[in-house]
Design a protein around this nucleic acid. Structure first.
Lengths: 348, 348
DNA sequence: CTGAAAGCGCTTACAG
DNA sequence: CTGAAAGCGCTTACAG
């Protein structure tokens, strides 16, 4: 035992076995032990097995810091986001870290809202840790982070955020998702379909509106009035539905730009005695369960598949890191319609 | 330039400068460069300055992997959680990572719901990265993670989760927060104060109920009926309020166990023409803004200060890692009442 | 005040 | 099929 090991142990620090311990116990060189454990090189099956058994006995955990130093890789990724709200980031991060863990890669999280200094500090800490690459996630698809990143000298993949020219990025396929939602309504026999959504300066709002229009066009239907753009809030949905009632122009279906708007819409109708889904069908967007499950009736809505988005981004980043060719550009990943009861689809 | 450097550079890999580059350019030994950069050792101010200037010129970033290898520290923490929902984890993680970044420490996130294998894999990846310590976060204060952690051989701090005997853990001070909420109501002249909350088998529900009782007792008031325990949902709040109306026993204030319940309560009253806050004041718990801001009127509620909780836990973990004495046990951190309009406090 | 040397725990040419 | 040696980029006794 070295002096250091003795000192650490007497200080109560748990001392891990190293590859030298494994090699010694298995009567092979460190070289052979390394190769046996990593499945590289050629050696007798017997030797490889013996080394592995010994490693298991010693509960050996390779020190990826040491490995990283020689391989010039840290097996580590950074996830940088300005969404501290959690709505997007956590599902995304969990999909990402699950996929990465399978490959021995861990991910650093740096979440900071509106605090450029904090993001910068986190970024610097990650640079010093020599992360192999970076995932940059936002909270809207047409905005980047609130800081100008310095030249990073490492691969970067963008998710749910605006990306610079030539970068690799992933966003949900808002337009097709919207089209699918509206088609669902059409398939249930609705033909006066309105759209209430978020602010027009959000690209997501524009894409969803466009999906709504094109599904109607394909079916030979006219939009029921213009789309009503405003805040992504319940209040917006509530007031707009209220206004429809007052004007006597209630449609037979409403496609909403998000679940909160849908919630407000349903509340307003319920309050006024308009029945959902009998009189008017409602679809949301996001599948944010605290809303989608809490509406009466439960909300049919679009799930953006955020964990899958995180996973895809991570895998693309890994390819980039490995120097594999990755087509630059914006990848639009498919979303899924989650059918509950707000359209009457399950009553048939 | 070494062969490796040449090869990497020709492969388009950005090559960082090392401490040797800095030392050479500043005409000092690597030893001196290291000491100058770290502020250790004694040397002329002039030398130290010169080294630092050169480091800045070369945009030198110390390789914390190499440093970690010799110092047997990775300057890295793991955050393990089974809350993929995001409600608790992300605010907590952002407070944690901000506080850690200030100290050059980065945090790995592993979030996995109900997937023991995934958590195990992530944990193993973190062990191999030699994280200096672990933060284990849950989604209720009386449950641990769904996996039995193997002996970890590293410091651990628990947050918002059950902790084993003798461990260091942090939870919000539910009982005093509840007491403060109820005192607020009493201070506004309310004296028939009911309590609607989550399932009784949640410790958080029991603590909040107990805070409600003791605030009333201190003020010489009787509880308005027994606490109504059930799900943490809007539906529970809605139905219970509805039942109060039907029974003709509407109190003049309701302290709710969370914001969702409060939301349901307010909706039911509004629907029945009972005015909030004029006829009945409502307080929630969580300060979950999508709910607390969306109720009409906006909700007065308790903020648990999750970023601060994450920060405190991180600092305690750092102390543990540094071998400083840390008192074991459960630390109950103070919460804050956020006054909005559902109690009429701002109308005075 | 400054530096040469050893070493952290691995991987990987290179040699046999 | 196997191993001795060099080296990844730092820090830190030890020596002067």
């Amino acid at each position: 035992m070295t002096d250091r090991a003795a000192k650490l142990q007497s200080a109560g620090v748990y001392q891990r076995s190293t590859i030298r311990d494994v090699a010694a116990r298995a009567n092979v060189s460190v070289t052979t032990a390394s190769r046996a454990l990593n499945g590289t090189g050629r050696m007798s099956e017997e030797t490889r097995e013996r080394v592995r058994t010994v490693a298991a006995e010693l509960d050996y955990r390779p020190n990826s810091i040491a490995r990283g130093l020689v391989q010039q890789r840290s097996f580590t990724l950074g996830l940088l986001t300005n969404d501290t709200y959690g709505r997007f980031t956590l599902p995304l991060a969990s999909g990402l870290s699950a996929a990465m863990a399978d490959r021995g890669v861990s991910v650093f999280l740096s979440a900071g809202e509106y605090e450029p200094e904090s993001l910068t500090l986190n970024l610097r800490a990650m640079e010093e840790k020599r992360v192999d690459g970076l995932i940059i996630a936002g909270k809207r698809i047409d905005r980047g982070l609130p800081i100008d990143l310095p030249p990073l000298g490492m691969p970067v993949v963008y998710v749910y955020a605006a990306a610079p020219e030539g970068a690799v990025s992933f966003v949900p396929d808002d337009e097709n998702a919207a089209r699918a939602a509206v088609r669902h309504l059409i398939g249930l026999g609705r033909n006066r379909i309105a759209h209430i959504t978020g602010p027009e300066d959000f690209k997501a709002a524009r894409l969803r509106e466009s999906g709504w229009r094109s599904a109607l066009r394909e079916a030979g239907l006219a939009p029921h009035g213009p789309a009503v753009f405003s805040a992504w809030t319940e209040a917006h949905g509530f007031q707009t539905a209220r206004a429809m009632i007052d004007a006597g122009g209630v449609p037979d279906a409403i496609f909403c730009g998000n679940d909160q708007i849908a919630r407000g819409v349903i509340d307003a109708f319920t309050l006024a005695g308009v029945r959902v889904p009998q009189d008017v069908a409602v679809v949301g967007f996001d599948n944010w369960e605290v809303f989608a499950q809490a509406t009466r009736p439960p909300l049919t809505t679009i799930d953006m598949g955020l964990p899958g988005l995180g996973r895809s981004a991570g895998l693309a980043l890994l390819d980039l890191i490995d120097g594999k060719p990755v087509e630059p550009g914006v990848r639009e990943t498919p979303c899924q319609l989650v059918v509950r009861e707000s359209c009457g689809a399950n009553d048939v």
